[in-house]
Amino acid sequence: TVDEATPLLADKSSAAAKDGGANYYYLGAIHFKREDDDRAITALREAIKANAEDTAALELLAESLMRKARKANLNSAWLEAIEVSERLRAIHDDQKTASLSGRAYLGARQFDKAVAPFEKVAKANTDNGQAWLYYGIALSRSGQMRKAMEALEITIQLLPDSIAALSELGYVYESDKQYQQALRIYEKAYAATNDAAIKASIERVRALASQQP
């Protein structure tokens, strides 16, 4: 069982240098599956010390760090996830590692640096609404409003009921002073949610629109 395996793996972990860190990786994977990120992170760091190019350990470490960062609102974990994901991309740069890197940058609120990896993923997966949503958010939050509009309009074509996409697109149109477009999007989002924050956005944009010549 998992409980029986854990102490055995922990005992063997002291010999990680002999087996390329495999035991540390398996121990980390067990803790990751249990959502025990502190222990998973500790074990996976050791796996990478033993083998700096262990892509499986790097990937799992980045995922564990991001989960910990989300739960604890911990910026240091986001920053370490960025470092780990970039090490992984240096070894093997593909859509999967680009997505990992983009999510780490997004979590750390380094939106401008999230754009390039998310662009790579979105443009390679033209029918993946989630990929376009991440790309659109990165563009929006880094101030690239015109490109954000395009990406988020594509997102809504693929995911017409995505409240996250509708809310972000409404924000982009509002920021660009396209108030009628913003109202159209916000009203669609509000109709699906009755969310008080979206209602407040509608009222704010109506007031702004009334002031336009």
Results as ranks from 00 to 15, higher is better:
1 T>R: 11
1 T>H: 13
5 A>T: 02
7 P>K: 00
9 L>R: 00
13 S>M: 04
14 S>P: 05
14 S>A: 14
15 A>S: 14
16 A>I: 08
18 K>R: 03
22 A>C: 13
24 Y>I: 01
24 Y>D: 13
25 Y>M: 07
26 Y>G: 12
29 A>T: 02
32 F>A: 11
34 R>E: 09
37 D>G: 03
40 A>V: 02
40 A>T: 02
40 A>F: 03
45 R>D: 02
45 R>C: 11
48 I>C: 02
48 I>G: 01
50 A>L: 02
50 A>N: 03
51 N>S: 13
52 A>Q: 05
53 E>Q: 04
54 D>P: 06
56 A>V: 09
57 A>D: 02
61 L>C: 00
62 A>M: 08
66 M>Q: 06
66 M>V: 07
66 M>D: 09
68 K>Q: 12
68 K>T: 06
70 R>K: 15
72 A>I: 12
74 L>I: 15
75 N>I: 15
77 A>V: 12
77 A>P: 04
77 A>S: 08
78 W>R: 09
80 E>A: 03
83 E>P: 13
83 E>C: 14
87 R>C: 13
89 R>E: 12
92 H>C: 14
92 H>K: 14
94 D>F: 15
95 Q>E: 14
96 K>M: 13
96 K>T: 10
100 L>I: 04
102 G>E: 03
105 Y>M: 01
107 G>H: 07
107 G>N: 06
115 V>W: 03
115 V>I: 08
116 A>C: 05
118 F>I: 14
119 E>N: 12
125 N>A: 06
128 N>H: 08
131 A>K: 11
132 W>T: 05
132 W>E: 07
133 L>S: 05
134 Y>S: 11
138 A>Y: 10
139 L>K: 01
142 S>H: 09
144 Q>S: 13
150 E>G: 08
150 E>T: 15
156 I>P: 14
156 I>Q: 13
158 L>G: 00
159 L>H: 08
159 L>F: 10
162 S>V: 03
163 I>R: 06
164 A>E: 14
164 A>T: 14
166 L>D: 04
166 L>E: 07
167 S>R: 06
170 G>M: 01
171 Y>K: 12
172 V>W: 04
173 Y>L: 02
177 K>A: 06
190 Y>K: 01
194 N>Q: 04
195 D>K: 00
199 K>M: 10
202 I>T: 01
202 I>W: 07
205 V>W: 05
206 R>I: 10
207 A>N: 10
208 L>T: 12
209 A>E: 14
